[in-house]
Design a protein around this nucleic acid. Sequence first.
RNA 1: GCCGGGGUAGGGUAGUGGUUAUCCUGUGGCCCUGUGGAGGCUACGACCCGAGUUCGAGUCUCGGUCCCGGCCCCA
Length: 413
Amino acid sequence: MTIQRPRGTRDFLPHDMTRRRYLEYQFRQVVSRWGYQEVVTPTFEHLELFTMKSGEGIVGELYNFTDKGNREMTLRPELTAPVMRMFVNEMQAFPRPLKLFYFENCFRYERPQKGRFREFWQFGVELIGSESPDADAEVIALAITMLKIAGIRCDLHVGYLGIIRHVLSSLNTEQQSKIMRLVDKKDDKGLDDYLEEIKAPINLRMQLLELISLTGKEALPKAYKLLGSIPELDTFQKILTLLDAYGINYTIDFGIARGLDYYTGMVFEVYAEGLGAQKQVCGGGSYKLIQLFGGGDVPSTGFGIGFDRIMEIYNIEPEPQNTVVIVTTDRTRLNAISIACKLREYVPVYLDIMNRNFKSQLSYANNIGARYALILGEREISEGLFTLKDMNSGRQESLTLNEIIVKLTGENK
RNA sequence: GCCGGGGUAGGGUAGUGGUUAUCCUGUGGCCCUGUGGAGGCUACGACCCGAGUUCGAGUCUCGGUCCCGGCCCCA
């Protein structure tokens, strides 16, 4: 039996990679125009980096291992923690804000399903050093711009954790975290039961339940009515005003909660259709992780895009290149090499290495979908005029090498 | 970790206990020494792995594995 690829991993064939690289190219264009610069962190890190961030419980979902020096290591399951670690290690004195992006593979030991793999790619950004509404809005706007350029139709949901935290401020942090988790899961019954269990004040319950049910255009005024004029609502309103200025449509959703303590304020999620149960293609928010990793009290905001999930619904086909297959005879093979080398400065060129006859070479050109066949027989070599055959139309013309180069590169633009 | 559906050449498939596993497609070669896509011939190529039942297993049973969808989780 042949060796299979590991569970939850994928092979990417040439056609897949053409499409993936094109999406990657589109994303890179956008983030660099917004002033973000690429960073790369190691594929594996000390296990502790992730347990510090997310708790011991995540170890079960990690590809962790002990190395030969008895160090507890893990393949990275995400990139926010590594980038924050990198910031603490080497970038604390850089001018702020720092605008970083990454595109790397990550690994999680989970049960694969649609849009979920054990090795997957994340494209993300981290904006470090600002906690202004402007930073929050910029990050959201960047995410939406990227998805739009990829041709993805999606729903943006924006929330603000500070508001729920305000409501829960009389509870201890453990109780707050638990409630946030239940809210995030939209587990209404579990939430009711838990509020009952901890005997939460009736006023708090009423405010919480009403708050998380608020949605749509009226959500903000209603929230003001419910909670009064608190600074968290003012901040949220500023973010929304900025999003309006960016021309971005959003749904207010106080139900995006996220149970982890390092999220500070704005949170957002983006959903796309056609993806089954794993429909979230992007998630982000503002958080404070840097102190946890031994750095200063530096706020940051970021998001990660599930690159593979985008690929599932991405239907842009990159323009094919003007591939040329050179067709030679036994007597012109040596001449063909120098011509191939010249053309390879401009376009992809195939030169027969199978010792095929004339007809088979042409047939090969057809089979690989080449745009042109360049016929280099004795006649052409002696005349210095080569026969360029358009494989789509079947038409062919006699041209000099320079004319051919002009034709091939001109059509590329 | 749990639930359901699956696994026969590279791709798509037929085959409900019985010779040498079917067909389509693909790929290589030839028909065809300067003109591709069609056609003909030919070659290549598969029962996911293991155990069990049986005179005999692609077919039945069990375990494993991988795929698809879902639960959990989603940092």
